[in-house]
Amino acid sequence: MAPATVIEARELTKRYGRRRGIEGVSFSVQAGETFGFLGPNGAGKTTTIRLLLGLLWPTSGSVSAFGLPPGPEAMARVGYVPGDLGFYEQMTGAALLEHLAGLQRDPPRLRGDLCARFELSQADLAAPVRAYSRGMRQKLALVQAFQHDPDLLVLDEPTEGLDPLMRERLYELLRQTAAQGKTVFLSSHVLPEVERVCERVAMVREGRLIVEETVASLRARMLRRMEVVFSAPVDLEALRVTGVVNVQADGSRVTLLIRGSPVPALKALLRHPVEDLVFERARLEEIFLEHYRPEPGR
């Protein structure tokens, strides 16, 4: 049985008067998927999230969560970490979590575990939010989003302000969440984190969706660099096999640019005296930069 569609956007458009928001954005996210939503600042990521949560009305098109239009019924199954943290500053962390949990239909059954995971002590929670550092606010944002064990997590820049240890704990939490069949919609411009946790990504540029693909297939389409050092001179033409699009030599060091499978190139190399070899994974960052590099004349 095909997994259920959790988020579906169809030709979603939002304009703010003459100002562009997003234009004709369509994508879907399946149950159990960790979906990365990428783009530079101002590309339309937050607008898309706000449309999904019903905070904005679309100019045209539609978006749904669990087959429902944005509204209380759909939101009952959602946990949201906003990019702009709007907490009541004079409340204590504990009172804020309690207040927000009181608005949910499900009890905050994961709160204790989450506070322990993100090292929010009782003393921390007893302090007013105005005394919190940026990192502590972010931890509080994560706890309030996850505490009622929602089916869909919508995370807007969730690692903002977290130290590397806490980031690791969040990645671990996201992996566990996905393993339980929950869906994660992760908006970020921190590419290594998206690469680590997401199976599929969409990229927006100037309000339009330019890519929606699995991370693996994106990588497969990318040019990858293989640097080989030979102990004796080699015939460069013999290295131009399937997938190798360019060969450059600098003395005994040869650089191959490979698209797709590296196997034919590796087989060709076996016939030569290889002394050293460096072959890096295609990184999402390179894919991102390829898509967002300014077009000539702009």
Partner: peptide, 17 residues
């Protein structure tokens, strides 16, 4: 003020109309 400070985002992303 809730709209200005984004506190409304947290409230309306819950089952609150």
């Amino acid at each position: 003020q809730d709209v200005e400070t984004h506190a409304a985002d947290l409230l309306l992303s819950r089952p609150v109309s």
